[in-house]
Design a binder for these strands. Structure first.
Length: 169
DNA sequence: GCAATGATTTACT
DNA sequence: GTAAATCATTGCC
């Protein structure tokens, strides 16, 4: 619920970032002002601006003091599609609407001012929808080639049978 | 205080 | 496939 408008979607693609992972901003417990939200308890948000253009939305997953998080890369729009189209300045719903971290954040109205929030309040929240048919695959992460051997870790997870998946550049 | 850089996207050659 | 856009954060001076 952002700006009084409710938008929602099913998460279809994520990437994991851990403290012993060179691709993570908090590698080896490096602590900076930007990454401070990652040191909160699991269930908080961590949003930051990348390349000066795109907002990336993460969910903090570990206990307080252990900075680990999951990057939400793509969603399938379910509620408020019209709002997402308007935010993205698009006319028709297509996979480009909300696949890819930057596109997804823009469609959901997420910006860096929402970093450090609890995901148990009425602004952003995540619901568990039981669906026994989910098929999930994994692969190396995208866009972290600078992380040396950690770039090969298969920490990208996505639904096998969906079009809402970003493609490597 | 200042230069370097990136968990990306988009458009162009 | 390659490059530009574009800026907060970081790290070094």
């Amino acid at each position: 619920m952002i700006g009084g408008i409710h938008t929602a979607g099913q998460i279809t693609e994520t990437e994991a970032y851990a403290v012993n992972d060179k691709a993570c901003h908090c590698y080896a417990y490096k602590r900076t002002r930007r990454t401070e939200p990652m040191y909160l308890a699991g269930g908080h948000s961590y949003v930051y601006l990348c390349y000066g253009v795109h907002h990336l939305f993460n969910v903090v997953t570990n206990i307080a003091g252990t900075p680990e998080a999951v990057l939400i890369r793509s969603i399938k729009p379910l509620i408020g599609k019209e709002t997402m189209l308007e935010r993205r300045k698009m006319l028709l719903t297509s996979p480009k609407l909300s696949t890819g971290p930057g596109n997804m954040s823009q469609a959901m109205g997420i910006t860096a001012i929402l970093s450090g929030l609890s995901l148990c309040e009425d602004i952003i929240w995540i619901e568990s929808v039981q669906n026994g048919d989910l098929s999930i695959s994994s692969s190396p992460r995208i866009g972290v080639g600078y992380a040396e051997e950690d770039a090969l870790r298969p920490w990208r997870f996505f639904l096998t049978d969906t079009q809402w998946i970003s493609k490597p550049h």
